[in-house]
């Protein structure tokens, strides 16, 4: 579904990605893991076209997006959902308006149909009846869940999650992880989760991609990653456990 071939990206003089190769298959839940600043967010921003690569090729839904025109890319983006690290809810709109945003922009559904979908998605993230609240009135965990409801409003085939559990308490972390797993299994969504939270990674991942200083250093199932003798991976796992 997604493939990176030798992707490079620099900001000014700073090299962020130096030749990333990775693939993500239909239906899997892949966790991209690595220390802060190693280029995880940049990697998923490349996949959704928020950042353009300097070199290499990127494929989404088996179409090369590297040189793709915005209009064409938009038809791909309609099949993608993304949960941002901060939630990125539109603070001038209510929760309901946030969730129905793509439905308003890209479909001809009636108001009643849109409201039904909004209610259904809010139900899925355990926040029923919160349509009329403003993002400012929500707690961090609620904001992430509304962001999630917005990301799945158009029933996407792939959802990207950027640090879905960072900054949340352990109970909320567990709940979000459960939500991600449920969405992946019940709706057959391909999930790409970026995190530096090891525990979450091992809980939800079918496969883990380990990044370090702009490179993929290891990839495998959670068991394989735990048993690898790659020193960088060991250090990361060990460092967190201390």
């Amino acid at each position: 579904m997604i493939r990176f071939e030798n992707v490079e990206k620099s900001f000014g003089a700073k090299r962020v990605l130096c030749g990333v190769d990775l693939y993500i298959q239909k239906g899997e839940t892949v966790v991209i893991m690595g220390p802060s600043g190693c280029g995880k967010t940049v990697t998923i921003k490349l996949a959704v076209g928020l950042v353009k690569p300097d070199a290499g090729r990127i494929f989404v839904f088996d179409q090369e997006i590297t040189e793709m025109h915005e209009q064409e890319f938009d038809s791909i983006r309609k099949r993608i959902g993304m949960l941002f690290q901060s939630g990125a809810l539109f603070d001038s709109m209510t929760v309901g308006e946030n969730i129905e945003f793509m439905l308003v922009q890209h479909t001809s559904l009636t108001k009643a149909e849109r409201h039904r979908i909004v209610a259904e998605k809010l139900e899925m993230v355990n926040l029923p009846g919160t349509e009329d609240l403003k993002p400012a009135e929500l707690s961090g965990g609620m904001r992430k869940r509304v962001g999630l409801a917005r990301a799945i409003a158009m029933d996407p085939e792939i959802v990207f999650y950027d640090e879905p559990t960072t900054g949340l308490d352990p109970i909320m972390t567990g709940e979000i992880n459960l939500l991600i797993s449920n969405l992946a299994h019940n709706l057959h969504i391909t999930s790409v989760v970026v995190t530096h939270d090891m525990k979450s990674a091992f809980t939800i991942a079918d496969r883990i991609i380990m990044m370090h200083e702009g490179r993929v250093v290891a990839t495998g199932t959670p068991e394989e990653i735990q048993q690898t003798d790659n020193p960088i991976v060991q250090q990361f796992i060990h460092g967190i456990r201390l």
Partner: peptide, 17 residues
């Protein structure tokens, strides 16, 4: 403010330039 809170990126990802 929309930029630093990623709302502009969110718009873009939601296929709205």
């Amino acid at each position: 403010t929309m930029r630093v809170t990623e709302q502009i990126d969110a718009l873009h990802v939601m296929a709205t330039h």
